[in-house]
């Protein structure tokens, strides 16, 4: 039995000759909260759809909950929940009718959880889905994905349309879910602060490949900002393996590095006869540096 709930091996996907995913490999451990970060158009949604069998990769293999996504068994689908970027639930149904309709497809349904979320998020059961705002539809979509208590929850930018209060509630709900039972959460987002709050593992998608995959702390240890203050003006740009960016102003240089270690610091200190301060970066800054 694999420790990974999702295994992606050398997956490639292109659209009309344009490569979106390029020999991408990724493993998502069971019970983790896994965040996927990437620029617009980097392939996050494509990757998610490949994981769920909504798209078929040209090359490679995907195993989700031990099953082939293109031929999911009903038992596997019972363990899966998905919230797309912009869901469109039948507009002529009411909120309650949409919930009842979705419920009938699952053998297990947590009515108490669903009713609690409907109440917390102030959705009126008699309102037609077509009359709800985008944020409300997103909330309903999240509720519908949680009702059957899935083992794997996949969210594609779930909080993009939510107001700050709803986002907080959503984050809290995820933390509760993970704490209560072994539920793996896989989500893509642009809001790095939310990712920092909940994710224990992060993958960065760049140029169709996974640029980094590991623990959030591991990423923060790897990418640092170094402030080099020399006695003399720094004349040349600092170029070395692992340097992501370098800005020089007279005798001060600010460089971002990847794969930071103490040896790097000592090397800079001796080369420039300088004092080097190491600064930690938050996830947003790391993302910006890695995508320069």
């Amino acid at each position: 039995m694999s420790d990974f709930i999702v295994e992606v091996k050398s997956v490639s996907k292109n659209f009309n000759g344009k490569s979106v995913l390029n020999d991408l490999s990724l493993n998502v451990p069971k019970g983790s909260v896994f965040g996927l970060l990437g620029k617009n158009g980097s392939g996050k949604t494509t990757l998610i759809k490949c994981l769920l069998g909504l798209l078929k990769p040209q090359k490679g293999e995907v195993v989700t909950i031990g099953d082939n996504p293109l031929k999911f068994k009903n038992g596997t689908k019972e363990k899966l929940g998905y919230v797309p970027q912009a869901d469109r639930i039948y507009p002529w149904l009411t909120v309650r009718q949409a919930i009842d309709y979705t419920e009938t497809f699952y053998t297990v349904w947590d009515t108490e959880l669903v009713n609690k979320l409907v109440s917390i998020w102030e959705l009126k059961e008699t309102d037609k889905v077509g009359m709800l705002s985008e944020g409300q539809v997103q909330k309903l979509s999240i509720i519908l994905s949680l009702g059957h208590r899935p083992e794997l929850l996949v969210f594609d930018e779930p909080v993009a349309s939510l107001d700050p209060a709803a986002r907080r509630q959503f984050i809290k709900m995820i933390l509760d879910l993970v704490a209560d039972r072994e539920c793996t959460i896989f989500f893509s987002t642009h809001i790095t602060t939310d990712l920092e709050r909940v994710a224990d593992r992060v993958a960065l998608l760049k140029d169709g490949k996974i640029d980094f995959c590991g623990g959030l702390d591991e990423l923060k240890d790897e990418v640092k900002r170094l402030r080099v203050t020399s006695k003399d003006p720094i004349k040349e740009s600092i170029e070395a393996e692992g340097v992501l960016s370098c800005e020089i102003l007279n005798n001060e240089a600010v460089i971002s590095v990847r794969g930071f270690n103490e040896g790097m610091k000592k090397q800079l200190e001796s080369k420039f006869n300088a004092e080097v301060q190491v600064e930690n970066l938050n996830l947003e800054e790391i993302f910006l540096e890695l995508n320069r």
């Binding site: 999911f72 899966l80 869901d87 469109r88 039948y90 979705t102 497809f105």
Partner: peptide
Amino acid sequence: KRQFANHRASILPGY
């Protein structure tokens, strides 16, 4: 068409 041009056709069991 609305029922099948929908991710639910692939995600929901026995759909």
